[in-house]
Design a protein around this nucleic acid. Structure first.
Lengths: 183, 183
DNA sequence: AGATTTATGAGACACTGTGTATCACAAAAT
DNA sequence: ATTTTGTGATACACAGTGTCTCATAAATCT
């Protein structure tokens, strides 16, 4: 009887996704979540030990897909293109990412996403420059710029489109160059 | 009878500071806090409506002092110097800032600090460039680089000193220049 | 189809943490 | 010395988590 289990889990994931469009993660109680999924309260704990575990499950899917899209671009020496890929990906579930990345909502997942973005940036930034700085500021910049632009965009109206190509050009010029500064 | 009240509040602030060195903000219960301060549980609520209010109080002091130090430097067109001022300030209470800025510990205060740092950076960055990018990436970079370096340093041993002058030079060259890129 | 697993729904329960109210006591102020 | 006011201790209502039990419905197997 795996079909029923899978269906219940799908209902729970869907319910969380739906509730996240209206309220932050912390404000969602397991009872409300179960009710929204049309599932018994105790049933929830038969599938996930806690609310966070459900979020992790959701995030794992999301991040796995993110990796699948960004990875093929990591060999290309074009940071802007990878950022555009990130934008495109996030755009597909704008409401979800708004809930996840803005506000002090879900620091767990936000930290996960930042780590992921950092790893991607580091991947195609290559070895760090020997400029005496303890952290690779090129990676710092690529990551923070990407996140900041996404955050800005998440706050805009639905209609607003990202000026992705222009941003890509700026990032390519600024952030990921063989050496920091005038290169 | 103001002296007693002030003393109690001081005890509470001190206790929070002390507890933050051992556990994240969320893990600290009001009961433990009151006990650590040698104060009755209900007494806490006579001074602060919630745990967050106490944190806000602590943050307000901290940020006010931060402003007093960084403000005088905002007219100077030297981002590195302001960053060094930030470093020096954070260094005075390393344990506190480690608890506040690292991990997913206290997103509220972390967000406050980031906003503050952003405002400072924007102050001496001047008007944003008209490069079509919706956010001022110079500010983004100055803020994130400063935070990242601080975060790195907070993870180091006590003895480790920040290479402030070198970082200042890098920041001056990279981030806050009249126009983005090759200037 | 009928018997047997197995997931589910409903509700009760213990536990923890928050925030409020009460009362007696101690420390100030007059 | 008396009044005022902050404090400590305790009890309480409330909300949310995670566990448990039991009857029921669904899926699997013969």
């Amino acid at each position: 009887m795996d079909a029923r289990q899978a269906r219940t889990r799908a209902k729970l994931l869907e319910a969380l996704l739906s509730l996240l469009e209206r309220e932050p993660f912390e404000a969602i109680t397991v009872r409300a979540l179960a009710a929204a999924a049309g599932v018994g309260y105790a049933t929830f704990f038969r599938h996930y030990p806690s609310k966070e575990a459900l979020l992790d499950d959701l995030a794992a899917d999301e991040i796995a897909e993110l990796l699948g899209r960004a990875m093929p671009l990591m060999s290309v020496k074009d940071s802007g293109r990878a950022c555009v890929a990130l934008f495109d990906f996030v755009a597909r579930r704008k409401a979800l990412w708004r809930a996840l990345l803005t506000g002090g909502a879900a620091p767990i997942l936000r930290a996960q996403f930042i780590d992921q973005a950092r790893a991607i940036a580091a991947g195609f930034a290559g070895p760090p420059p020997d400029d005496g700085c303890p952290v690779d500021l090129r990676v710092t910049f690529a990551t923070s710029a990407t996140l900041e632009i996404i955050a800005w965009w998440l706050g805009q109206d639905e209609a607003e489109a990202l000026p992705t190509e222009r941003i890509a050009a700026i990032l390519n010029r600024l952030a990921i160059t063989p050496t920091v500064g005038q290169g």
